[in-house]
Amino acid sequence: MKKTYNCKLIRKEELCPGIFDFEIECPEMAQAAKTGQFLHITCGGSTFLRRPISICDTTDTTLRFCFQVKGEGTKELSLREVGDMIDVMGPLGHGFETVPGEKTVVIGGGIGTFPLLKLARETDSAVFLGFRTKELVVMEDDFKAASGNVTVCTDDGTYGYNGFAIAAMGEYLLENKVDRIFCCGPTPMLKAVKQIAEYRDIPCQLSLEQRMGCGIGACLTCVCETKDEGMGKYKQVCSCGPVFDSKEVVL
């Protein structure tokens, strides 16, 4: 039987204003977790629903997740201190599917970069990370430890590659053969990556986000639109995703 876990927060860091990096202890979940899966977390305070947050990385006994304070839930979660217990369901969802030996691209934008760290380590990937500006660049060292080929980009050119991560990826694709692209980021980035991948006929997996209820596929609230009709027109991001084949979804 699956269950919920009461996990101790063992490390907490504020990476930049409003962006937090948590590590919790739970050997069972840590060992079961696959890259791209998420945790469904009770944030506390007066918030009611759990909040879905992607797994950033794992060790044998711990899980790391990063999040931006956006609303009441993430604000409450950010107030937790080391030693506090956090009620977590997970690991949930359908993560990235990797194929050993493939040359791949990992591309993420903003807070969408967090779920890609474990993936970057587990694949032979060129990694492109996009941020709006220098102050928002986070986890660069983590990614550089995970992959030998990391390009950090800023939209305003204040750090690293001057421009969108998509542009840097586009240049890379002109000169390198790639077997697969993995992406997580804001919708405009997902749309662009989907378009580029399909134009170049490169298989592509996108990690999506949606307001969520149960987290396990029962309540049908966190859906994304697909190319199917009827019952299958909308698929649950929590259980069919959060990672989808780019050709399956309509963004």
Partner: peptide, 14 residues
Amino acid sequence: PRGGNKAPRIAETP
């Protein structure tokens, strides 16, 4: 069969 409504389909309230 029915596809249902567009997302977002859920919002938290007090």
